[in-house]
Design a protein around this nucleic acid. Structure first.
Lengths: 200, 200, 200, 200
DNA sequence: AATGAATGAGTGTTCATTCAT
DNA sequence: TATGAATGAACACTCATTCAT
C-alpha cells in the first residue's frame, strides 16, 4: 500500500527493513532541519545508503514525503478521536494547536505539507483526507452544538492553517501562528450567532 | 508617463522599451500559469527574446518578480487610502477581498508572493512592508473604533492570507478563500468584545 | 597496486577506474596542447564521458590539475632525494634540468603550474610546497658547502623557473630555458664568493 | 598603424580623440589594478563610454593591450639609450631594475605582458622586439667589454624576467624578483670568466 | 537486494560581438 | 560617430534517474 516492498508478499528482508528505517530517519532530519527541496542524494548520504536503495524503497519524492508523514498524520487522527469527550469548541482549538505544534517541532514539515497539499497524487490526497476527516469530525460536533458556523469546510480550514505555517521561517513563528489560528477559530464561533449589535 | 518616454525619443530606445514590456508580459504568463520557479530561460523564450536581454533588464529573479508586482502592490496601497472613509470593519473586509481578487486574477501571484514573503531581499521586504502598511492603516482604525482586537499584527494577517491563497490550485478556489478570510475577519471582531457566553 | 585494485573486485568498479584513467588522459591532452583554461566540458568530451562523470571524479578544476600532476611532482621529490649523493651544485643543476625536461614532456604543464602557483587552494599550496621542499633540500647542501649564496629562497627560484617555462610556446623552447636556467644557477654560485674584480 | 582611427587620413574628430584617451586611461586602471582578464564591458564602463565605442577604437583585446603599453615600452627603449654611458654591467642591471619597477608600478602589467609575449600578433611581436632591442643593445656592450657571456639572447632574458614577475601576486613580490634578477645578471657575469676554483 | 557510477538535460550566469538607433 | 540594447554561444555546476556490477 505504502511502497513497493510491501507488495511482494514475502516478508521483507531484515536489512531491507533496516534500510527503510534509516532512510526515513535521514529524510526526516534532512527535510525537517533544512529545506523540503534538499536533493535525494543528500538524503541517501545522510542515511549512509546508496542512492539506488533510496529509489528502490521510494520510487518518487512524494512517496518519501508520504512515508515520512503518514505516521504523524495518524497521530493527529488519533488525537481527534481522543478529543471526542472535550467541549466541542475547545476540542477544535486543541486539535488545531496540536497540529501547529506538530509542524513546529518538525520544522520544515510545513513545506512538505505544502508540497503534499498541492500535489494530486493518490497518496497525498489520501493523507490530506485523513487530516480533513479528523478535523471534520471535531467541527461537526461544534456545529451540531450550535457553537460554530457550518458553512466552512474542514479542508478549507486545514489549507489555511498549512498556508499560515508555510509563510513563516523565523524561529519564533509558532506563537504568532497560534494566535492567528485562534482568531480563525473565534471567527467560526462568532458567526454561529450571527453578527451582533456593536453596542451589545 | 509611458507616453512621455516613448515620445521623447531620448534614452529609452524603442526596442528596449518594447522588450521590457514583452518580458514582463511573458513573465506574468509563465509565472502565473505555472510555477514561480519556472526557468528564466523559459521566460525569455516566451518573450521571444535572448536570455541575455532578460538579464540586462532584470539582473535577478527577484528583480523580475518585483517589476511584475510592484504596480499591483501600489494599487492595493492606493485602495487602502481610498477606503479611509468607509466604516472601519467594512474597509478591512473590502481591502482583503480586493487582495484576494487581485491574486485570483493574477493567478500564480500567490506563488510569487510566497517567494517574496520568504525571501529577504531589500526589495521584497519593501513590497511586503507596503502591503503591511496598507492593511495596518485600516486595522488601526477598526481597533481604535473598538471594533477589532489589536493584538494581531497586520503582517500576521497578511501572511495568513497569502498562505491561504497559496495552498490552492483548483480553478474555483477564490470563493472558498474569500469565505475563510471572512471568518478570519469575524474572529478579529469577535474578540473585540471578548468571549461571550455561548447560550449557556 | 593498480593491479590489486582491479583484481580484488572490491570497491573500485572496473568502469569507474577506466573512466578515471580516460579523464586523466583526456585532461592531460587538452590542457597540454592548448590552454590550462580549457573548459571542463571539452575535457569530458575528449574523454567521451558525461560531464557529470568528470565532476564525480574531480569536483573542482584544481582537483583535476592536482590529480594530473601529483604523481609527477612526487617523482621530482624522489629525484631530489636520490641526488643527495651528488656534488651539491651539480645536484641542483640536475634537478633543475629534470624539472624543465619534465615540463617539456608534459607540454602545457607550465600553464598548469602557473595556475597552481597563483591559486591558493590547499592542495595547490601543498604541491608547490613539495617542490619547494625538494629544491630547498638541494640548495641547503650547496649553501652549507659554501658553493652557493643562501639569501635566495627555493620558492623564488622555482617561481622564476616556472615563469621562464610559461613564457614560451615555440616548439624548441627547451634548450633556451635550460641555458637561461644555468645562468641563474651560475648566478647563485658566483655570489657565493662575492663580487670579484673584473680584471680591473 | 596602431589602430583604426589613424588610418582614415582625415584628422580625428576632437571627441573621438578624447574618447580614445579616456579608454586608454580606463583600461590602464582596470587592467593594472585588477586582472588582465577583466571584461571589456568593465573597461568601457570605467571610461564612461559605450562598449561600441571601445570596439571602434580597439577592435581586439590585443589592440587595446598594445596601445596601453606602447608608450611605456618606448620609455624603456629610451632609457636604454640613456644608459649608454654607464658601465656596461651596471647599465644592464639598471635597465632590468627599471623594467621590474615599471611592472611593479603598473600592477597587472605583468599579466598583460605575459599575454603579449604569448600572442603572435604583428603588433605584439613588434613591441616585444623593441624591448628586446633595448636590452640587446646593453647586453652587447657588456659582452664586448668581456664582462658578460654572449650566448644568451636578450629575448631569453626578457622572457625570463616577465615570467618571474608574472608568477607573483603577493604585494611585496618586487624585492624578491629584484634579487632573483640580480642573480640572473650575476650568472651572466660569472660565466664571462668561466668557472673558477671553488677554493678561490 | 544493495550499491554507487554514469548520464545528460537543465539552470544560472557571463561576455564578446553585432547592429539598430 | 557614438551608443548601448540585443544576442546567443559558452561555461560551471546540479541533480533526478538509470543501470552495470
Amino acid at each position: 500500500m505504502a511502497d513497493q516492498l510491501v507488495r511482494s508478499g514475502r516478508k521483507p528482508r531484515a536489512d531491507a527493513q533496516r534500510n527503510r528505517e534509516r532512510l526515513l530517519e535521514a529524510a526526516t532530519q534532512v527535510f525537517n532541519q533544512g529545506e523540503a527541496e534538499a536533493s535525494l542524494e543528500a538524503v541517501a548520504r545522510q542515511a549512509e545508503v546508496g542512492i539506488g536503495t533510496l529509489y528502490r524503497h521510494f520510487p518518487t519524492r512524494e512517496a518519501l514525503f508520504e512515508a515520512i508523514y503518514r505516521r504523524e498524520v495518524q497521530q493527529l487522527v488519533a488525537l481527534a478521536e481522543q478529543l471526542d469527550n472535550e467541549a466541542p469548541v475547545e476540542a477544535v482549538r486543541r486539535w488545531v494547536h496540536a497540529m501547529i505544534g506538530f509542524v513546529a517541532v518538525k520544522k520544515g514539515m510545513s513545506a512538505a505539507l505544502a508540497v503534499v497539499a498541492q500535489s494530486s497524487s493518490q497518496l497525498a490526497v489520501c493523507m490530506l483526507e485523513q487530516m480533513v476527516g479528523a478535523l471534520d469530525r471535531l467541527l461537526r460536533r461544534a456545529v451540531s452544538a450550535g457553537e460554530m458556523r457550518g458553512d466552512i469546510s474542514a479542508e478549507e480550514i486545514l489549507r489555511a492553517l498549512v498556508g499560515m505555517c508555510y509563510m513563516h521561517d523565523t524561529p519564533d513563528w509558532r506563537r504568532n501562528v497560534l494566535r492567528t489560528a485562534d482568531v480563525l477559530i473565534d471567527g467560526l464561533r462568532y458567526a454561529a450567532r450571527g453578527p451582533q449589535p456593536a453596542g451589545r
